[in-house]
């Protein structure tokens, strides 16, 4: 038992072996083997349709909710194979997700951030107040919204909504945060603010950051994986890849912006 716990504590945040993903039989991603160590930012780059989003969906078992999606191989989160979870909802509660386009749920700003706690049964208003303020502060949104917590979350600007989404993900108190091209609909200033937030969060959680901006991976990620048309081309130390140390010439070409 104790040995088992030690093992789990030492296991990488995410451990993927021979992962293959299909949609209705059509292969979307194959042969992915990689480890995401704890408490670091792990970057995933690659052009559209290379399987980055599918990879994230396999980690938090959204395949269960996607008609036709099947996953083969193994995906372990903190030492436990995700498909061995009998309660997939409990797994998802430990994993925060931020989508490409901000999704302010059609409720107040306060309720957006309180939702996760409410779903877990927290009713006490002052407990909720604490959670809401803490998460909004950590997402660098508190100062902008503290006077209008009761207005609709979906009325915020795109950049604010994306920070609201991050606050909502943080309210789950996750040990893993999955970000899918979070800056795609966000202005550059907000992008930089969110990047600062992520750099701070790294101390407390593991972050998998799929990004359409290779420079963003360079700024934040310790390791970076390059996906291309359903294949993991390579994974390595970010600095090595960017300093010309990539083993695969396709990686070098992509990093140099020769295709996208």
């Amino acid at each position: 038992m104790v040995a088992g716990q030690d093992q789990a504590a030492a296991a990488p945040a995410i451990d993927v072996a021979d992962l293959a993903i299909r949609y209705g039989g059509q292969l979307a991603l194959a042969g992915v083997t990689l480890q995401v160590p704890r408490n670091e930012i792990f970057g995933i780059i690659g052009p559209a349709n290379s399987g980055k989003t599918s990879f994230l969906r396999a980690v938090n078992r959204m395949d269960l909710l996607t008609p036709g999606m099947t996953v083969e191989g193994s995906v372990s989160v903190e030492g436990k194979e995700v498909r061995s979870w009998r309660n997939a909802y409990a797994l998802r509660r430990r994993i925060g997700v931020v989508f490409p386009l901000p999704v302010g749920l059609p409720m107040t700003i306060y309720e957006n951030v309180a939702l996760s706690a409410r779903l877990r049964g927290t009713r006490n208003r002052s407990d909720l107040d604490v959670i809401v303020e803490r998460c909004l502060r950590r997402a660098a949104l508190w100062d902008e919204v503290k006077d209008r917590l009761d207005s609709l979350g979906s009325l915020l600007s795109g950049g604010q909504q994306q920070r609201l989404t991050i606050a909502r993900a943080l309210s789950q108190d996750p040990s893993i945060l999955l970000l899918d091209e979070f800056s795609i609909a966000v202005d550059p200033v907000t992008t930089m603010r969110i990047e600062e937030v992520l750099a701070e969060l790294r101390a407390e959680m593991t972050i998998v950051m799929v990004t359409n901006l290779v420079q963003q991976a360079r700024r934040l990620a310790s390791q970076t994986a390059f996906f291309l048309t359903g294949e993991l081309v390579e994974v390595g130390e970010t600095e090595t890849l960017f300093e010309g140390g990539a083993r695969d010439e396709r990686t070098t070409a992509y990093l140099e912006g020769k295709f996208g």
């Binding site: 938090n60 959204m62 909710l65 909802y89 409990a90 797994l91 998802r92 509660r93 430990r94 994993i95 925060g96 997700v97 989508f99 386009l101 999704v103 749920l105 059609p106 939702l115 996760s116 779903l119 989404t165 909502r168 993900a169 789950q172």
Partner: peptide, 16 residues
Amino acid sequence: DTYREAAEAMGATRWQ
């Protein structure tokens, strides 16, 4: 559907 997906990703059950 983005609303449903966002809530599901938080671990909300179908009923929730």
